[in-house]
């Protein structure tokens, strides 16, 4: 499955007003549950996972988090995207007790473990692509975000 098919416009949340990353997880998690992408155990599993293995990544031009949890809590594969109106504090992946400010979140919902490596490589290519990052930062609506994600600069990215 081409990875851009995992994105859906109704799973994109632009400029969410919230004060903590947990509030953002709740908002995204409840939509995912309502639309049958995840099981009822998803939100608590996601939160717990993020506490133990935080997913904040500091890249050259953007800070991003990739919250995710085990396959068993996912019903149907997806990638949801959310941006917060204000940067929120999340733990930095691989660093003890370090938090970073993140406004851009990609929630990874994968059911097949063998596609995970390729998906992560694909996303890292996007996250390190200057034009993609600029497009994401400047998108003002869910629709604009969706266009940026669905049509990354293919010749450069893929």
């Amino acid at each position: 499955m081409p990875f851009d098919e995992l994105f859906h416009q109704h799973l994109i949340f632009s400029n969410v007003k919230c004060e903590t990353a947990y509030q953002l997880f709740e908002k995204v998690g409840s939509r995912l549950y309502k639309e049958n992408y995840v099981k009822s155990s998803y939100l608590s599993a996601l939160t717990k996972r993020e506490e133990t293995y935080p997913t904040g990544l500091s890249l050259e031009n953007i800070n991003i988090a990739i919250p995710h949890t085990d396959c068993e809590h996912i019903s149907s594969p997806f990638i949801a995207y959310a941006s917060s109106e204000q940067p929120l504090l999340v733990g930095s992946m691989g660093e003890k007790n370090k938090t970073i400010q993140v406004s851009h979140y990609f929630f990874l919902g994968i059911t097949e473990s063998k596609t995970q490596v390729e998906l992560l490589q694909y996303l890292m290519t996007l996250f390190t692509n200057y034009q993609f990052v600029q497009g994401l930062k400047h998108a003002k609506s869910e629709e604009e975000v969706f266009q940026v994600i669905k049509h990354p600069i293919r010749s450069e990215v893929l």
Partner: peptide
């Protein structure tokens, strides 16, 4: 090594 479900360690290993 990683403890992550998105196969971060495999991605890094292949890089």
């Amino acid at each position: 090594a990683c403890g992550s479900g998105v196969a971060t360690s495999q991605t890094v290993a292949s890089k």
